[in-house]
Design a protein around this nucleic acid. Structure first.
Length: 404
RNA sequence: GCGGCUAUGGUGUAACGGUUAACACUACAGAUUGUGGUUCUGUCAAUUCGGGUUCGAUUCCCGGUAGCCGCC
């Protein structure tokens, strides 16, 4: 009996609502997964996460390996006990940092490329040592893994698939990811293909390393990651290849420009098995979440809600709003007119704007909580809508108002 | 009252007899999608006033005004 299982309760086209069972509880999907990179969601207590109706939390292998070290978290009884979260947990493999510390380091590249930017097809061969020294990148990739310098103290470290899995076993999350490479959206077709096939080889090795550990197999499920950038043929090849391996679930990773996201997603999802959970890595923004759900994704993690909140932008039913703008100094209205988030519903925009302008951490906390609650309610609402056969209308209503 | 010192964006500082007066903060905007903790990008914004020297003065000189310090 595997520790992770998934059962769909309702389908609508590619979309589905279901139950993802884990050793620390069931997750009603679709579900949004708040990100607590270093074993803590920035500014939010575990009890508040629960009050916001978070069902599961994701932390990061790279960060926890560097500090405080996976051994210490293992000694604490694992990620959940360490951080005081009793529900299900996930860890990312550290593969994303290959991108964020490598190709994207010191540049303006983000996971999602803007459609109108000329960033496409520049074909930068980003991972050789010459470029590394040129741009001060912190990561270099080879067939076996990634060598990187710590952003904390400059010391040299190395991740391989086996090492990533070993660390994730020590962290002990219910679900974790195979080691992968998240390519830059500016990388060309040939590089994307090479990187994708390397990720497939890492997937196989990650899976093998996991299945060899009987103890871990009783408690943890491993997810394989589909790559392939924005190219649909690569996404199909990747999905077929990863789906052929004995993973407990699947992740869609990587980067693409905004307008290519749907095509890449559809190409991948059609080759994934119906009976296993699908996680959309690093997505997303409200509209992207609904599109992901529409295309059959079950879970999502994203830092946007908390990062935007810390920087002063809140989600509202009418779109994102930068509370630091002058017009909100004396706006005594609620943070949002339609969405009430438990714990923040009594605060006015003027008050939170004041806190943010004053540099009070409470402003960042309230904005982060609001955004997290907003996203969680959005995804919960999508689940209810799926169960009640009205998802399309739900998505259209939200999107029309949000992007008006 | 006398003497000395000082005067540069909203604030604190920099600079030089010679392009467009620099920097930080603030203010005003923008960005942010598997987090490199209050980040990143952009914009607005100043030589106290009046004379003089000089090809050219924010800079040198004289005076006004204001502030600070000291003395009586």
């Amino acid at each position: 009996m595997r520790p992770i299982s998934f059962a769909a309760e309702k389908r609508a086209g590619a979309a589905r609502a279901g139950i993802l069972r884990t050793p620390h509880g069931d997750i009603r999907t679709p579900a949004f997964v708040p990100v607590g990179t270093k074993a803590g969601v920035k500014g939010i207590l575990p009890e508040q996460l629960a009050a916001l109706r978070s069902q599961v939390v994701l932390a990061n292998t790279y960060h926890l390996y560097l500090s405080p070290g996976e051994k210490l978290i293992e000694d604490a009884g694992g990620l959940g006990p360490f951080m005081g979260w009793t529900g299900p947990t996930m860890t990312d493999s550290g593969g994303f940092q290959v991108f964020s510390l490598g190709a994207a380091f010191g540049r303006t590249i983000t996971k999602i490329a803007k459609g109108d930017e000329n960033a496409r097809d520049q074909g930068v061969a980003v991972y050789d040592e010459e470029v590394q020294s040129q741009h001060g990148q912190l990561a270099i990739i080879d067939e076996e893994g990634v060598t990187f310098t710590s952003h904390l103290d400059g010391t040299l470290h190395r991740f391989t698939a086996e090492r990533s899995i070993e660390i994730q076993h020590a962290l002990g999350a219910d679900m974790f990811f195979a080691f992968d490479e998240c390519t830059s959206p500016t990388a060309d077709y040939e590089y994307q293909k090479d990187a994708m096939r390397r990720t497939h080889r890492w997937a196989e090795r990650s899976l093998k390393a996991h299945r060899q550990n009987i103890e871990a197999n009783r408690k943890q499920g491993i997810f394989g990651i589909v790559q392939g950038g924005r190219y649909e043929d690569l996404r199909e090849e990747s999905a077929k290849e990863i789906a052929s391996m004995d993973f407990d679930g699947f992740g869609i990773g990587g980067s693409f420009s905004k307008e290519d996201m749907m095509g890449a997603l559809q190409a991948a999802v059609k080759h994934l098995p119906e009976g296993k959970p699908r996680h959309f890595l690093g997505i997303g923004e409200p509209g992207d979440l609904l599109l992901g759900i529409q295309e059959g994704m079950d879970t999502f993690d994203c830092v946007a809600a908390t990062r935007l909140g810390r920087h002063g932008t809140i989600y509202t039913s009418n779109g994102p709003v930068n509370l630091k703008r002058e017009e909100f100094k004396s706006d005594f209205g609620p943070l949002d007119e339609l969405v009430m988030v438990p714990g923040t519903e009594s605060f006015t925009r003027a008050y939170v704007a004041h806190l943010l302008r004053s540099g009070e951490m409470l402003g960042q906390i309230i904005a982060s909580m609001h955004n997290l609650g907003f996203i969680l309610q959005l995804v919960d609402g999508a689940r209810d809508a799926l169960l009640e056969d009205r998802f399309d209308a739900y998505r259209e209503d939200f999107t029309r108002r949000y992007y008006a």
